[in-house]
Structure formats: C-alpha cells, structure tokens
Simulated scan of single mutants.
Amino acid sequence: MTGNKAKNKLGKQTLLFSNRPIVASGGAIVGVKEGQGPLSKWFDMVLEEDTFGEKTWEKSESKMLKEAVKMAITRGSKKESDIEAILTGDLLNQLMSSAFMARDMQIPFIGLYGACSTMAESLLVGSVLIDGGYVNNIIAGASSHYCTAERQFRMPLEHGNQRPPSAQWTATAAGAILLEGNDGLRIGEEKPLIIDHNNGNPVTEKTVCVTHGTLGKIIDTGLKDVNQMGAAMAPAFVDTVLNHLEDTGRQLSDYDMVLSGDLGDVGKKIAIDLLADAGVPMKDLINIYDDCGVMIYEKEQDTHAGGSGCGCSASVFTGYVYKRMKKGELKRILLISTGALLSTISPGQGESIPGIAHAVCMETC
C-alpha cells in the first residue's frame, strides 16, 4: 500500500510553498579581505579588522553573526521580541558561533549544521515553518571566519602552511535574513519603504518570496583530499539542480540567476561539465549560472580557488543577490548552497568527503 502524496510536494525532493513566505530584510557583514573584493559596496558592513574588537576569533565570528541578525530585525521594522525563532549555523564544533549568539539574544533557537550549505538549509527549514503557519517571524542565517575554520579543520595560522592551488579561502562573513508570513501580499507586489539604506532616498521595493525548496541528498564520489572541496561538492550540486528542474518541470533558462554556494573555480568548472553532459545548454550555464565562492574575491587576492565557508553564500545572497531582487533587477533566482560534510577527525580515519546541496527558489513579480 502506498501513502497519499503530500499536497505541497513536487516530484521526489521539491517542496512547494503555497503561502510564499516573504524575505523581508537582511544583514550582511564581511571581513577585511572580503571588503576588498568585487562585491564590497553591496555588503552592509565591512570590518576594519577581523577580530571585531574581540579577544578570540570564535568570539569575533559570533559577534558578526549577532550583528547581522540584529541588522535584519531592525531593517524589517521588528523588535527582538517579535522574532519567534532563530535558525542559524556555522562550521565550528557544537555550532559555537550560533549557540553563543543565541544565548545572548534569548530568542528560541534551532541550530543547523549543513557545513557550507547551511544558508540554504536555514532558509528552507524556516520557510517550512512559516508556510505551515507555525510561526510568523523567523531569522535564517549562517556565518564563518577564516581564522576559526583554518585552525579547526586544517592548521593553526601560526604554522604558515602552504595551500595548494585547488584550496579555497574560508570567507570571514555572516548573513541573516528575516522571513515573514505572507499577510496577503501577492508575489511581486511592491512594498513601500521609507529610505534606501545606500543613499537615503525614498524608494519602493519589490516583494521577494520563497516559492520552492529542494532537499538535497548526500553524494559521495570517494574523494578524500581536503584541499579539493569544490570537486567533492560539485556532484551534489549537479544532482540537486537536475532533481529541482525535473520536479518543477523547469529549465535553467527559467531563472535569471542560479548560484552554487561555494564550489570555487575548480568545482564550478566541474559542475558546468557535468550539467552540460546531462543536457543543460551551455549558453544557459554561461549566462545564468555562477558561484558565490568565485564572485566574492578578485583573482588578484590570492585566494587560490576562491571562497568557501557558511558565510560565503550567506553574505553574497543577502548582500548582493537579494538587494538586486528588491530593485527588480532579478525576478527569479535559485540559491543552491553546497556543503562538504567532513568532520575534524574523519579525514584522519581515512573517510571520504560527503557532499550535500540544498536549493531555495525566490521570486518577485
């Protein structure tokens, strides 16, 4: 006997959000190196120094995330008491950055770990809670810090160990999004705001809604090199893209932008090859697809294969993509944050690197 199909399920892995949760506001904070990159003007805050005035790198990352959360709440014209849950994650053991941020804010907290896929994961889970009518206001976010991740997953910075060309640079960044229940606004309906945060002028912005989410599954090709994260995650990204397109009946050309979380230069090239082999037109891949890890740094910044970390896709989406959607420059995007689910001890035990990728579709009129 087979069970009844869920009414809001498309195909095997995609969820349809019929109530279309609203992406109401956001905050993106980045470190010094990220502030020197091509997206600098889009971020809400660039740190003057990566300690952020704290005594440890871990406290610095937690403070970044807390400030990004507060920024999203304030810009959404909410008070902290209005927020019914915070859904965030990071790369540290026991979600240290997120847990201590939530401890200080005293808001109900759900810690999520999807490695660098955490931003899409938090948006997806948050949209389920809002679409189901369980909450009206939640925060979804993620953070990372170069100095915390390096000493946990690789070597202490003091060692000055050399990185191969395929290695990526963990972004010092945090992004937070306020998700609201849809109170009758139609998708794409314009929402008047008092000021533009960049120039102080009165503006009318587009309403951005979450319409679909595709749950990823772990894809493990047996790769064990921790300096090849992009290659390890690319197959999972491709699997999620293909399943999303099949479930929704769409093509890549139905989107203005499709973003992978942080495959970097190496992983992006692999993803393009695999998607082209699967029949996705190369012109669409060239014109529509990009990667947050490639976008966040200039090649001259010596990050080798590009950016990585939970904060990479969190800050690029919140700072750059979301703001372009509110302006009406992008009408439909697919964010697919990618994660390598290794631990600090699994490589030493001879384990391979499992990859995961979750997708969230957001639209305006």
Rank of each mutant, 00 (worst) to 15 (best):
A85E: 14
K41F: 15
N8E: 08
N19T: 09
E80K: 00
S143C: 12
E58A: 02
A359R: 05
I22G: 13
H212A: 01
S97R: 04
K70V: 11
G311K: 00
E190S: 14
A232R: 11
I336Q: 04
C361W: 07
C292E: 03
K63E: 15
A231I: 09
G213A: 06
D220T: 08
A176H: 06
C365G: 14
G175H: 03
F17I: 00
S313T: 00
R332C: 01
D256E: 11
N199G: 04
L10N: 00
E329R: 02
M362L: 02
L185F: 12
M257Q: 14
G175C: 04
E34G: 08
K63V: 10
S352E: 05
L215W: 07
L215F: 05
K79L: 14
D247K: 02
L124Y: 13
K323C: 10
V238Y: 09
H159N: 13
L124A: 09
A28K: 01
E190H: 13
V360S: 05
N182I: 06
S260L: 03
M105S: 01
S315I: 01
M71A: 00
S352Q: 08
M64S: 12
L179F: 12
L275C: 07
D273K: 06
D277L: 13
R20Q: 13
L275I: 02
P164F: 02
I73W: 08
D50A: 03
E80G: 02
M105D: 06
V128G: 00
Q13Y: 14
I110S: 13
I83R: 15
S117I: 00
G76D: 13
I177M: 15
Q94H: 11
A115N: 02
L334S: 05
S260V: 01
A234R: 03
L341C: 04
V238F: 10
D290T: 14
P354R: 00
F237T: 05
R186N: 13
F237M: 02
N182Y: 11
E363A: 09
P202V: 14
L47F: 02
